[in-house]
Every structure is written in structure tokens, then in C-alpha cells.
């Protein structure tokens, strides 16, 4: 049974890989944006580095009456949640720590972002921040149940909550093919978790930046890096859950994992570029009335398939 636990020296590899994938996503976004703006997309590949340079020089801000403890804690929590969540994601056959409840651990770590964004919004003591933070709560309460059922479908298909077992169970057929509805709902909730693209309302421009409106300098940099690392994490988690982990002809396992992760990440970046924002009061009803029944039926189908097999 693969999914052995990696040696301890692999631990720093996780944040490094997340950073690299996050940078790739940021560069991809900048390139797509430059192409739309008519500038040369190749020059945009250095855009995230330039933006980091600008934010490193920029000074930090204080807001009167702000709850600085929660404010800074919120900003720092997003990258920490990303790295903690990535501990269970296998690179090739090995994950840093293959918990017996890897899927539930991943779910618990991404819920931390709810607390992070609310603290960011509340801590900045500004209307934009507060409204942005509350928007993410509505978004969270809408996407969470379909997301949980999608994860349950994957765990049901494998008969275990261990990510290694989920990868092992996809020897013959990938779960993306076996349970397409769960995979689609996972991608939707992945964008909602990382408040990305159509689900970017909590940090939307119509709220002057929403939860991040009052952030500047290194705080904004930490949050921006955390956000892209989190996007990389949700893309990376789609691979072991639905795309057969490191399975693939010819190339070694870890190359396949990275290739598939880059593919999913590219899809998410492209969808972010291609789609307008979804308004939360409309998505909430659609999520509860459409997505929850769809994932429940998918879970029923997978249960029957597992019993029959």
C-alpha cells in the first residue's frame, strides 16, 4: 500500500512547493490580465515578484479603534492553514504525514480560512472589511455542505479517510470519471474556499478590496502569498482525491502529481479570469437547493457502486 509517510526533511518541501505553485498561479493571472489589457503577457510573468517588491517597501498602516491582534492573526492564519492542509497531500507516493483521517484534516484546515477572513474584516474596523468578512461567512455556509459531501463521496469510493487509500482505490478508474458531479462540486467549492474568481466577492473591487481594504505593506503581502498558496493547496488536493494521485504511464509519480496539479491550477486561474463574480445571496439558495441534493445523489450512486462491486 503506497502512501508511506515521508521523512522529516521533506516537511520544508511542502511550503516551498506551495509557494512555487502559488507564484505560478499569480504569474498566470497577471499574464491573462496583461493579454486582456493589450500589454505583452511575457512581461507579466515577473508581475508577482514586482508586486512583492512594492509591498515590501510599502509601510504598514494602523486604523483607529482597530483590533490589531485579530487583524494580524487573520492575515497570518491563511498561509499557515495552507501549509497545514498540505501536510496530507501526497507528492508522488509519499505525503508528509499520511493521517488516517487525512480528508477530515484537510477539511478542518480549510475551515480555518473562515476564521482568518472574518478576523481580517473585523480587525480592520472599516465598513468595507466588515462587509467583506461577513460575505465570506455567507459564502462558507453555502459551499461547505456540498463540499463536505463531495469529499465524502471520494472517501466512500475508497472506503477510508486516508488520502493514501483514496489514491490506491483509483487504480482502475479515476474518481473524476466515476463521480463527475462530486468532482465538479469540488472544483466549485475549491474556488469558493480560496475566495477566487467568481467567488472573489469577499475581496471584491466593489467593496474597495473588501476584507483586505485596509491592509498594506507586508500584511497585504502575507495575505496575498497565503491566498495563492491556498489556491495551490485546493488544486493539489483535487489530484489525490479525484485524479488518481501519482498514477500515469512513463513519467515517475511525483512528476505526474505536479503535472496534474498544475493542470487543475491552470483551470482554476482560467475560470477566475473568464467568469464574473457570483453574488452570494443568489449562490446561497442555489447551493442549498441544487448542489446539496446533487452531491447527496452522487453519494448514493457511489455507495451502490461500492456495494455492487
Amino acid at each position: 500500500m503506497n502512501g508511506t509517510t515521508a521523512p522529516l526533511w521533506a516537511a520544508p518541501l511542502v511550503p516551498a512547493l506551495l509557494l512555487a505553485l502559488g507564484y505560478g498561479a499569480a504569474a498566470g493571472t497577471a499574464a491573462l490580465r496583461a493579454r486582456a489589457a493589450g500589454a505583452a503577457p511575457s512581461a507579466a510573468l515577473a508581475a508577482p515578484a514586482r508586486e512583492s517588491a512594492r509591498l515590501l517597501v510599502q509601510r504598514r498602516r494602523t486604523v483607529p479603534g482597530a483590533d490589531v491582534l485579530l487583524w494580524r492573526l487573520g492575515g497570518a492564519l491563511v498561509p499557515v492553514a495552507a501549509v497545514l492542509g498540505a501536510l496530507v497531500v501526497p507528492l508522488g507516493p509519499t505525503a508528509v504525514s499520511d493521517l488516517s483521517v487525512g480528508v477530515v484534516w484537510f477539511n478542518a484546515m480549510e475551515v480555518l480560512v473562515w476564521a482568518a477572513l472574518w478576523m481580517l474584516g473585523w480587525g480592520s474596523n472599516s465598513v468595507w472589511g466588515l462587509v467583506g468578512g461577513y460575505r465570506f461567512l455567507v459564502q462558507g455556509l453555502s459551499y461547505e455542505l456540498p463540499h463536505m459531501f463531495a469529499l465524502t463521496c471520494a472517501a466512500l469510493g475508497a472506503g477510508s479517510l486516508r488520502v493514501g487509500d483514496v489514491v490506491a482505490a483509483q487504480e482502475q478508474v479515476w474518481f473524476a470519471a466515476l463521480m463527475p458531479a462530486a468532482f465538479a462540486v469540488y472544483l466549485v467549492s475549491a474556488m469558493a474556499m480560496a475566495f477566487w474568481g467568481p467567488f472573489g466577492a469577499p475581496v471584491g473591487r466593489d467593496l474597495a478590496g473588501g476584507a483586505v481594504a485596509e491592509l498594506s505593506g507586508v500584511d497585504r503581502l502575507v495575505l496575498g502569498v497565503g491566498r495563492y498558496m491556498f489556491l495551490a493547496l485546493v488544486a493539489a488536493m483535487a489530484v489525490p482525491l479525484f485524479l488518481g494521485g501519482d498514477a500515469g504511464p512513463l513519467l515517475p509519480g511525483w512528476v505526474w502529481t505536479l503535472a496534474k496539479t498544475a493542470g487543475v491550477l491552470g483551470l482554476l486561474v482560467w475560470l477566475g479570469h473568464r467568469l464574473p463574480a457570483v453574488r452570494m445571496d443568489r449562490f446561497a439558495e442555489a447551493a442549498w437547493v441544487v448542489l446539496v441534493p446533487v452531491t447527496l445523489l452522487q453519494a448514493l450512486a457511489v455507495a451502490v457502486y461500492v456495494l455492487v462491486r
Binding site: 477530515v104 478542518a108 475551515v111 480555518l112 473562515w114 476564521a115 462558507g140 461547505e144
Partner: peptide, 14 residues
């Protein structure tokens, strides 16, 4: 243990 963490984060946000 992980279930307590997961449930409690959501409950505390509500």
C-alpha cells in the same frame, strides 16, 4: 479530535 476542531471553528464563526 479533528471533527471537534472542524465543528468548533464553524460554530464559533456563527
Amino acid at each position: 479530535g479533528v471533527l471537534v476542531v472542524l465543528m468548533m471553528v464553524m460554530e464559533m464563526m456563527v
